[in-house]
């Protein structure tokens, strides 16, 4: 199923693409992207998926698949230098069950270019209880510049704070949000 979608997308890309060079990057992007993006890529090829414009363009220009951070939750670092976008899997943080969290860092004044030259550490705690997570999540760097924290666990109900510490050149700024678990 996934494969056929992928092949269909490939076919569309091949027949509708103009510049061969651009096509090369497109294919590479599609191949490197995860299954979700592959699906997005194929959906983007459906005529009315992207725009509501009345007259269909004679030959739609190839579009990059939407970045995985699109529609993710956003939080700004304390001193305002960074924007952190993040999403969890599952989308709603479960009470006392493992989840993963993927985050992208942007300069606040360029919120569509993922910063790759910063260090990001993700952590969480329950300040009211004076404890952190019972786990030390595993961090995986993804090709699109995001960091995925695997094996996160919020093992108790109540107020959790999520910390994104962004460091560059010995300077660290923290972006912070809280999550209320029932």
């Amino acid at each position: 199923m996934k494969l056929s979608l992928f092949l269909a997308a490939l076919g569309l890309v091949l027949t509708s693409c103009g510049a061969p060079r651009a096509q090369e990057t497109r294919l590479k992007d599609v191949i490197e992207a995860g299954p979700a993006q592959r699906e997005n890529a194929s959906r983007a090829k459906e005529p009315h998926a992207q725009s509501d414009s009345e007259a269909p363009a004679p030959k739609p220009a190839p579009q990059a698949p939407p970045p995985a951070w699109l529609g993710a939750r956003e939080t700004r670092s304390g001193a305002g230098a960074y924007l952190v976008r993040w999403r969890t899997e599952p989308a709603e943080i479960p009470m006392n069950d493992e989840f993963s969290l993927r985050a992208w860092v942007f300069a606040a004044d360029a919120p569509d270019v993922v910063l790759r030259d910063v260090e990001l550490v993700i952590d969480a705690a329950m300040p009211d209880h004076g404890h952190g997570m019972a786990r030390a999540p595993k961090f995986v760097k993804r090709d699109d510049g995001s960091i995925e924290a695997q094996g996160m666990l919020f093992h108790m109900p109540g107020r959790w704070e999520l910390y994104f510490d962004v460091s560059k050149d010995e300077l660290t700024e923290r972006a912070q949000v809280h999550v209320e678990l029932e």
Binding site: R135, A136, P137, Q150, G151
Partner: peptide, 11 residues
């Protein structure tokens, strides 16, 4: 599997 991931994240 998941159990091995869980084990690796024990703090």
């Amino acid at each position: 599997g998941d159990a091995a991931l869980r084990l690796s994240t024990v703090r």
